[in-house]
Amino acid sequence: MAMHDRLNGDAILVARGVEKHYRAAGNSIALPALRGADLIVNRGELVAIMGPSGCGKSTLLHILGGLDRPTAGEVWLDGRRIDTLDEAERAVIRRRQIGFVFQFFNLIGNLSAADNVELPARLIGTPRIEARRRREELLEELGIADKAGEVPGRLSGGQRQRVALARALVNRPAVLLADEPTGNLDSGSTRDVLSLLRRYHQSGQTIILVTHDTEVASIAGRVVMMRDGRVVGETDRAAETEPIPVAIGTEV
């Protein structure tokens, strides 16, 4: 790797000048979703990306997670450049190093909760016994061990998101990416999921979450603001005085 490729030793995820243009079918006009976004996320951080609808925050998240390729710019994951890799290579990296949580859960409908959680572990070739042990552990931690045999259709929104979270964490990923993780949940479930995210962050998990909800963003140590496809600002709470933990929904 060249000199300028080695950055701050703590950076786990780096995006530099990332652009993304969509070309509508049969249309010569390209629609820009990202216009040169820059972002550095360090190991162990909990970063929230915020912005109005259509600002490109989900697009950026997908590109950071290797789900999509940028039209221009660079993306580095744990010291390795990923934006130039082909789909299969990115998939392999993703299964080991990235965990995804989505707004609409995206669990496999005809697999039980336990099987959903275990799937990424099996994909990387984890021995079945080990995979089984890990999933039991996660289901226990997330308080849904009694729902292990149920299909997603039978679970509440909050329970499904916890299954999704377990699935995302089963391979101990370098980064957990969450796209509006509470967007589809009631306030009680929202509280639970946020508290879980905080807990895992405190034990060292790097988390990037996308949200439009300031109260969700308040659990993050750093909030990145986006507008019109660019990063326009940042608030680093860690640099401020110790934040007062605020429970979501309580009146201040």
Binding site: V92, R94, I108, L123
Partner: peptide, 9 residues
């Protein structure tokens, strides 16, 4: 979803 969690094409 499978691809999102890392299944190759």
């Amino acid at each position: 979803v499978l691809k999102a969690i890392g299944m190759t094409p």
